[in-house]
């Protein structure tokens, strides 16, 4: 195995695959030059890693202020049920457009007149059908009443 410099760096940075790591560790056992190089790289990495952190001068904090807020519509859009809102809005729009495009056409004036004439004929027919029997029944009752009246007069006129 040749001496792969990049593999030494990846090894130190934890970016080497398991199989490559094992191969490299085997190589390091047999290669003093790579061990020395690894030691120098390790010093550089640990020196940077252990560099003390700067203290932040003051804490950053946000207050609830309209200036900082992302705005009503952006918050609405990013809220959990946004898909629900969007679906409902689309459905409502589809219903309105459908209702507008395929609304039923109203009857014309001529059709209205014909319809009214048909209604009047029907009403007249039904009235006649209902009233004629009633009138005939009344006329029959009147005849009977007259006969009864005459008969009673004849009975009163007897000695």
């Amino acid at each position: 195995m040749s001496c792969p410099q990049e593999n030494l760096k990846d090894y130190l940075l934890g970016e080497l695959a398991e199989s490559d790591r094992e191969k490299l560790e085997a190589h390091l056992e047999a290669c003093p030059a790579c061990r020395t190089e690894l030691g120098r790289l390790r010093l550089a990495v640990s020196a940077v890693k252990n560099l003390p952190e700067e203290e932040i001068p003051y804490r950053i904090a946000f207050v609830s202020d309209k200036i900082f807020e992302p705005g009503f519509w952006r918050r609405l859009w990013s809220s959990g049920p946004r898909l629900g809102f969007a679906s409902a809005a689309l459905l409502a729009a589809a219903i309105i457009i459908h209702g507008w495009l395929v609304r039923p056409a109203g009857p014309s004036t001529g059709e209205l007149a014909a319809m009214e004439a048909r209604i009047q004929q029907e009403v007249a027919r039904r009235l006649e059908a209902e009233l004629v029997p009633v009138i005939e029944s009344l006329q029959l009752m009147q005849k009977r009443a007259n006969l009864y009246y005459r008969a009673s007069l004849e009975v009163e006129g007897r000695p």
Binding site: E53, E54, E55, I56, R59, I60, A61, F62, V63, S64, E69, R75, S78, S79, G80
Partner: peptide, 20 residues
Amino acid sequence: KQGRIEAYNVLVSRWERRVF
């Protein structure tokens, strides 16, 4: 995202030193 600023302040306190 639900508008709770205090949650964001926790995120800030968690990351501010590293970002700085």
